[in-house]
Amino acid sequence: MATAPSPLRTVAGNLCLGSAPDSWGVWFPEDEHQVPYTRFLDELAQAGYEWLELGPYGYLPTEPARLAEELADRGLKVSGGTAFGALHRPEKWDATLARVRNVAELTAATGAHHLVLIPDMYRDEKTGAFTESPELTAAQWADFGRTADRLGRLLLDEYDVRLVLHPHADSHIQTQAEIERLLNESDGRYTNLCLDTGHVVYGGGDTIDLIRRYAERVGYVHIKQMDPEILRQVAAEQLSFGEAVRRGVCVTPPAGVPDPASVIDELARLDAELFVVVEQDLYPCAPDVPLPIAVRTREHLADRGLSGTRRPRLR
């Protein structure tokens, strides 16, 4: 008699699992608290991952031939690049574009087709000090979507790279209302969503609702979970994201919210093939902390049908 499939396992053939330097405590191109990039790459492969996001520009080698050699030596492939950008500040457009071009060139050289853009944060990542107002003006909001589309069209036309904008704690795209406003005021041909499950819930949003109502705009996924108790501390004490991470807000599945199995179930229903990249914010952490977490996380997600053995087709 045939054995019934495990109720824990989801058929998620449209999803491809990867990881990122963030899961090894890497937030900056250089920092005394971070492991060398060679250790990250070695441990990523050892943990059983094939795909990676590039992380902060300058952490991994930026010379394409050298990066290709480092990846090939470990059997690794690139899902996308990562950049920060101040789309709400017209006076910073030139600087933002220069940074994004560097990332786009390296991303395209690896054969990847996604650039994850994180809005500049309004609190310092290390000190938590406010660097600008947490609220955008009406004029800044009016330009945000158009500026994202301008950048997205440039990336598509010049690099064959798709822009996916990443909601982030302590940024102006954090709450569900802000995420929806961005999507409603931008063009899906040029600007789509890097759905970060942890940052959505950090901002009080509903990941499942966003997937259901904006299915066509989900172009890439970061999967992570947050500790509800520390989220309560964030609200009560007005903690910065950096302080929340130091307190352990980002946790290993199946702990935390949102429930990763429910997220995978919902993503598996989409008529789209997507990278799902693991991120567990750990900065700063001891060097021996990330690898066991990475292994447990990959095994847990594999039990829910997520594997990393294929390249998703672009829409």
Rank of each mutant, 00 (worst) to 15 (best):
I264V: 15
L154T: 13
G58I: 02
Q233F: 02
G145P: 08
G188L: 14
L52C: 11
L314Y: 03
G188D: 15
P253W: 01
D259I: 03
R101P: 01
N192W: 09
E266A: 15
C194R: 03
V100H: 05
P5R: 15
G111F: 10
R310C: 01
R304C: 02
C285M: 12
K92N: 12
P287G: 15
Q140Y: 11
E178Q: 15
A68Q: 08
R315T: 09
H300W: 06
T197P: 03
D187R: 05
Y37I: 00
V11H: 13
D22Q: 05
V201C: 10
L156G: 11
W51Q: 06
P64K: 07
V295S: 07
Q176I: 03
L163R: 06
G204F: 03
A47K: 00
L151Y: 06
V100F: 08
A236F: 11
P5G: 14
P312A: 02
V295F: 02
A12C: 08
P253F: 05
R89D: 14
Q140T: 04
V78K: 00
G248N: 10
Y283A: 11
L136V: 12
D160K: 13
A294Q: 13
S186W: 10
G25S: 07
R189K: 13
Y220D: 01
Q46C: 13
F84P: 05
G128R: 01
R153L: 04
R310K: 12
V276R: 02
Y220L: 00
L115N: 14
L274P: 09
Y220V: 01
R74K: 08
D73H: 07
P253C: 04
S133L: 09
Y37H: 12
D73E: 13
D206S: 02
E229D: 10
V201I: 12
N102Q: 14
A139Y: 08
N102S: 14
N192Y: 07
R232L: 08
G18F: 01
D206F: 00
L267I: 02
V116K: 06
V35A: 14
E135S: 14
T10I: 13
L106W: 04
G48I: 04
D259T: 06
D120N: 08
T309Q: 04
I264P: 05
K77T: 07
E237Q: 15
G219F: 09
R247K: 13
P260N: 10
P258G: 08
S186H: 06
T147K: 15
D288C: 03
D120P: 00
Y283P: 08
E178R: 10
Q225R: 01
Y283H: 15
Q174E: 15
A235P: 06
L306Y: 02
E63K: 11
L314C: 07
V295M: 13
V276Q: 03
T197I: 00
R213Q: 13
A45G: 10
A138E: 13
A268V: 07
H172L: 12
V276N: 03
L15R: 03
F241D: 09
V103L: 04
D281Y: 05
P254Y: 00
F144I: 14
W27I: 08
H113S: 15
S6L: 10
P61M: 05
A2K: 14
R304A: 02
D124A: 11
L314F: 11
